[in-house]
Design a protein around this nucleic acid. Sequence first.
DNA 1: GTGAAAGCGCTAACAT
DNA 2: ATGTTAGCGCTTTCAC
Lengths: 346, 346
Amino acid sequence: MNPDHTIAPATSLDVARLAGVSKTAVSLVLNNRGTEHGIAPDTQSRIRVAADALGYTPNHAARSLRRQRTNIITFLTSDLGNRYFADVMAAAERTARARGYVVNVISARSADAEAEAFERLGGGISDGLMVHGGSVRTTAGIARLRRHGLACVLLQDAGAHTAIPCVRVDIAEGGRLATHHLISLGHRRVAHITDRRLSGQLTNDRLLGYRHALETAGIAFDPALVINAENSFEGGDAAMRLLMNTPHRPTAVFVFNDQMAIGGLHALAALKLRVPQDIAVIGFDGTEPGAFTTPELTTIDHPRADLGSWAATTVMDQLAGTKVETMRTLPVRLVVRASCAGPTQH
Amino acid sequence: MNPDHTIAPATSLDVARLAGVSKTAVSLVLNNRGTEHGIAPDTQSRIRVAADALGYTPNHAARSLRRQRTNIITFLTSDLGNRYFADVMAAAERTARARGYVVNVISARSADAEAEAFERLGGGISDGLMVHGGSVRTTAGIARLRRHGLACVLLQDAGAHTAIPCVRVDIAEGGRLATHHLISLGHRRVAHITDRRLSGQLTNDRLLGYRHALETAGIAFDPALVINAENSFEGGDAAMRLLMNTPHRPTAVFVFNDQMAIGGLHALAALKLRVPQDIAVIGFDGTEPGAFTTPELTTIDHPRADLGSWAATTVMDQLAGTKVETMRTLPVRLVVRASCAGPTQH
DNA sequence: GTGAAAGCGCTAACAT
DNA sequence: ATGTTAGCGCTTTCAC
């Protein structure tokens, strides 16, 4: 098909021949176990020189097949486009690399792609799996993979799957904090824009926190103030417009995430409503873009780096046979910027 | 180490035994070559049922080792955080999936990580490679990988490596268009904020286009109006502040990409300068966030989906032994939004 | 039509 | 201290 000018990569046998030793010696030395097996220093260097000269890299498939380990951890996500993901992933990657693992990212936006990814994962494509924003569907697949020895961890999963190690940030507390912040500024009509994919879920922690804050403040919950929207800039924009067309319009809005909040800010600007004078907006997650909007977005910051780092560590600990925490909840933090102020008196 | 309750995944031998046939039959049938080899329909279905019952998934390492093909294409990038990447990658993934390939993303932010990634790639971890935003250093590594039969393609590479297939968008024309747009609105002092990593490169196509437009309009090039900055929100912000502190301040700024332009808008808002009345800003790349800024960002839209799709196709065509184009340049498009207007008369 | 056997490149027992 | 050998799980000639 494609012989071109491609040269077959050197094998350990090639190295062995060039160095005048056996494959075993090559394997031992290149895996830094030469000394331990009493291989003479000069033999060792001869092998290394030979490997270098041939540009030898151990064949991944062969090594994985033999070791039953790939040294790869997969990060599966459905939304590569959201900056939130990139932050978590970057931290996971750094932490994994420090312990000799490589992270590869698989983006499965469609259900098909997700199913296919699980299929491949079952084939031992990697040793571990971090799943961010998995669907309900996901957990069955994960259970199967775990049974086959794959080290898994769920990030920010909505359900409570006690069996599968899970890292999350304290979303409910975040929702409470956000809403409380608005209430403490004097708002009484506080709306909430949420991800419509959560409307089917049993629990929506942001909503729980929102209601809790309302209740504590003695404000009646008004379902008309909760809008389901698509999780995107556009979705946030549309939801905000809807909300502003409400007869008795809210004076403050707590939005599902920063991305949607930025969409919301856009809608408000288009409607010639001033933020924060006419309407206060608070986002959720603390990603960088929110710090560069006009006005800057007040938000609930998530420890994204800790999230990714903890996920990677948990996977690697499982692989190492260490006992791991089943569930960890990380704290959130209110970041006050310019998009919130008290309601204007009329 | 970790025996736990893990069950070894079923092998093709397990399936064969359960179905009462040989491994050969299993392999043939599950690769849809059963009929072609004259395997009885009922034997085929017996095999499929057995495979299903055992939850059989072919072992990836074993299959790759045997076939000398992984069916994986790697997408290597240094900047997972920029939305631009996600768009390109999503298109590449979709295109690859349609032809039965899986895309995995490796993020190599540090030079170390990049070197390590190349190392692993040399070990046959995947069949093909798309590199986006590669450093100069990269090309040597790629040359070696190609010699070993890896199908490679460079996306948006600055250098001219005629040997390696390369897809790019017409950056120079984009720079010209952007600058021309500002000039046509009446601006004479047009600044340019660029990525400082390009200051060492031989060619900076945006700058070329910028100078070309200036020249055509009979405007002298003023090096003081070109600022090198870090490629980030923060970098764009800082560069814009610098520019606004210039004694003879520009009336319009063409920014390296949308992300940096958004940083610039933020700086201008902080400085209480109105966009576009006091200063016009044009971005570059056309990613979604720019459509949601206040004011909305005028920009040069890149065909990101085509870029990713073409990259994937080119890799797969090489793998299939098809002759491929060595270099393709895709067109850009001016998207007029609210961040540009003519200069105010004083 | 189906099965037996070889071998992909590597590592790890086991010999020497 | 080094080499020989078996085998990871799969695919693919080649016999039957």
